[in-house]
């Protein structure tokens, strides 16, 4: 299991279609919303950790 860097939920990497590669690391997301949010500002989430639902 991986952790969604935006909302902090557990995500199964084998199942989720929402992935994003940043600086050589693959991140997994629970939804398109979280992924889009991460793409906008990856550094923020990597520095501050998950901040909950973006909606």
């Amino acid at each position: 299991m991986a952790r969604d860097p935006v909302c902090g939920m557990e995500v199964d990497p084998a199942k989720t279609p929402y992935k994003f590669v940043y600086r050589g690391v693959i991140y997994y997301f629970c939804s398109r919303h979280c992924k889009k949010e991460f793409e906008k500002n990856p550094e923020h989430y990597l520095k501050h950790g998950p901040t909950g639902m973006p909606h």
């Binding site: 939920m9 199942k15 939804s31 639902m53």
Partner: peptide, 11 residues
């Protein structure tokens, strides 16, 4: 597939 989906629908 996640709790955030539930919240999206609810809202």
């Amino acid at each position: 597939h996640c709790a955030s989906c539930a919240i999206t629908i609810e809202k």
